[in-house]
Design a protein around this nucleic acid. Structure first.
Lengths: 194, 194
DNA sequence: GTCTATAGCGCGATAGAC
DNA sequence: GTCTATCGCGCTATAGAC
């Protein structure tokens, strides 16, 4: 397919999303201007509107794609609930450490979504929580786990695991495998039958 | 002390802080304008500057006062590490559930602080984390707790407990005491010697 | 596809009347 | 202590040249 001089749509589109991702994560959606994003990409502000209808959609697309990838990347293992819980724990940490900026945005910018967009993201988030809760329920039903309230335990575990993104830094004291192991140890014990 | 007609400094000052608290928590610091705050208080935008030098200070004062109260409200119990950990857990949940808006702001608006203000808040946050870590270290030293890494466990526990503010609603399925008990059960088991 | 220019608006903060 | 008025600026989004 022929390409006009100065035409870089295939490159510039992703670069716009990438720049928005970095700046939203660093400064927050409301604090970032379209001019800043354009400067990061290396185009004029007006040119951004070739790649997104508006600033809100830029945010929503980042969050929706992130949540959909989180869900599609994960398959509940069938067998033993304990193995499923370990797989969930390790996958959650791996997935979140691999894309800290998206995680941060998906967590912090919910209130900047328009109501319709918010509902979509909340639905995806709920679906993800249900994955963990079903594992906990399974373990409780088979007597492998002891949790007083599966819904609350689901939220507590996800909060604990997601917190890893607030302090983990590449090249720090612990590598990713070590972090996974330590968190799994705490999760395992927290739901254990005494 | 005589009061001029139309003078309401003793009332308006706190109302400004209160309005800023509500609006920052709901929409985020960067998304809230001084005009919105003024409208909430029932004065004109210019009048706000009688009570704060600028918008940044309004945010910083809310966060600093919150963190200082969090610290001053808490005294580490001397004796048994397990009792100290239970006291910390229950106090953390009680304190956070009692002021969800301040908690939300202290957590979400760190990146909107100027560097000097950020350093102050980070210092207070670190001091609070140290309270919990010292309890965990004490328990590990006396063989009451088994945690592979006290620093990581500190952050994991705080993340888990603070997460309660994201879902707890007054008048919901569980009251505050029940929530405290359930979280304490998970924390207790997570650090337990097997 | 990207540019320049700009419409139309809201912002934080200040000045000065009352 | 609060008001009105305003400065100077930056914002999102669009129009139209190239």
């Amino acid at each position: 397919m022929a390409r006009k001089q100065g035409s870089h749509a295939e490159i510039t589109g992703p670069k716009v999303r990438q720049a928005a991702l970095r700046l939203f994560a660093r400064h927050g959606f409301a604090a970032v201007s379209m001019r800043q994003i354009a400067a990061e990409v290396g185009v004029q502000a007006g040119a951004l509107y070739l790649y997104t209808p508006d600033k809100q959609t830029l945010l929503f697309d980042l969050m929706r794609d992130h949540m959909e990838e989180l869900l599609s990347d994960w398959q509940v293992p069938e067998g033993c609930a304990k193995l499923a819980l370990e797989a969930f724990t390790r996958h959650h940490i791996r997935f979140h450490l691999a894309r800290p900026e998206l995680v941060f945005i998906a967590y912090m910018e919910l209130r900047n979504l328009e109501p319709r967009n918010f509902a979509v993201i909340e639905g995806l988030r709920k679906a993800y929580e249900d994955q963990l809760e079903s594992i906990l329920k399974r373990g409780v039903a088979t007597g492998r786990f002891a949790v007083p309230d599966t819904k609350l335990a689901t939220l507590a575990i996800i909060a604990m695991l997601t917190g890893v993104t607030t302090w983990y830094r590449e090249g720090g004291r612990l590598d990713r495998d070590a972090v996974e192991g330590i968190y799994w140890d705490m999760v395992r014990k927290a739901v254990a039958v005494e």
